[in-house]
């Protein structure tokens, strides 16, 4: 339906909001005088996995963090254009930023559990957002830990520190923590770059299962992973969209010569 989002503004797709969870309309992001994103327009499909790829420094992570307003407190941050979530501008003055961040969950490059017990790590967000009552904590914690495949490893030490877990287990715990607040969109910033192959596989399986319930957008440097997990590829270079295409089309027959060069670099 959409092979290239390069020059496509949101105005072009008004009326088809139901198909898109996140719409980027000429998004320009900078910090002070330095411009990182130079007019990104793209529509990220609902219930699909979109992989954002591109060379180091092309603005992948900057774009991802803009989608749940993680740059807000950074000095010099400026954004032009619009980012729409389910048709509503997330940088509008009326946006409830905390609720936005609940709806747009994020998993980071390195696991970052809170210095609280394993149980509190999972329940804290859900309790604060009023999604769980005190009585829910033990059953829902168990459900989520089973969902991410961590229950057997931690069921007898829910009150212990999460830092005694392996890096992969900590990342799965962070995934459970994000899922506990029931997001509609899940942002993943190279979530497996610091993990062992077993944990990487587990995260990839989770991504595949999650797209039934939510839209997944992930940044990766690993093109094989993008090919395995994504339905759609958004390829950036120097803060601009080079190409957006379904995964098979992108890897088999990219429309832009820069995409072809990037992929062949990987193949070599």
């Amino acid at each position: 339906m959409l092979s290239s989002g390069r020059h496509l503004g949101v105005a072009d797709v008004v009326g088809s909001n139901l198909d898109w969870t996140v719409q980027l309309d000429e998004v320009r992001v900078g910090f002070g005088p330095k411009q990182i994103l130079k007019g990104i327009s793209a529509n990220l499909p609902k219930g699909k996995v979109t992989a954002i790829i591109g060379p180091t420094g092309c603005g992948k992570t900057t774009l991802l963090r803009s989608i749940n307003r993680l740059h807000d407190r950074r000095p010099g941050f400026n954004l032009k254009g619009r980012i729409l979530l389910d048709g509503e501008s997330i940088y509008a003055g009326s946006t409830d930023v905390r609720e936005l961040r609940r709806r747009v969950g994020m998993l980071f490059q390195r696991p970052n559990p809170f210095p609280q017990s394993i149980r509190e790590n999972i329940s804290l967000g859900a309790r604060i957002h009023g999604l769980w009552s005190r009585a829910d904590v033990s059953t829902k914690t168990e459900y989520l830990l089973r969902e991410v495949g961590l229950w057997d490893a931690v069921h007898d030490r829910l009150s212990s520190t999460p830092f005694s877990l392996s890096g992969g287990q900590q990342q799965l715990l962070c995934m459970a923590r994000v899922l506990a607040v029931e997001p509609n969109v899940l942002l993943l910033d190279e979530p497996t770059s610091s993990l062992d192959p077993h944990s990487t596989t587990r995260i990839e399986e989770l991504i595949a299962g999650l797209k039934e319930k939510m839209t997944v957008i992930f940044v990766t440097h690993n093109l094989q992973q993008a090919a395995r997990c994504a339905d759609e590829i958004l390829f950036l270079e120097q803060g601009e969209v080079v190409e957006q295409a379904p995964v098979k089309q992108f890897f088999d027959d990219p429309a832009d010569p820069r995409s072809r060069a990037y992929i062949s670099g990987w193949a070599v």
Binding site: N68, L70, R73, V97, R98, E99, L100, R101, R102, G105, M106, F108, N112, P113, F114, P115, L124, G125, I128, H129, C174, R177, V178, V181
Partner: peptide, 10 residues
């Protein structure tokens, strides 16, 4: 750690 808490909407 700050990112994790902010991203969770705490």
């Amino acid at each position: 750690l700050r990112d994790a808490a902010v991203a969770l909407g705490l």
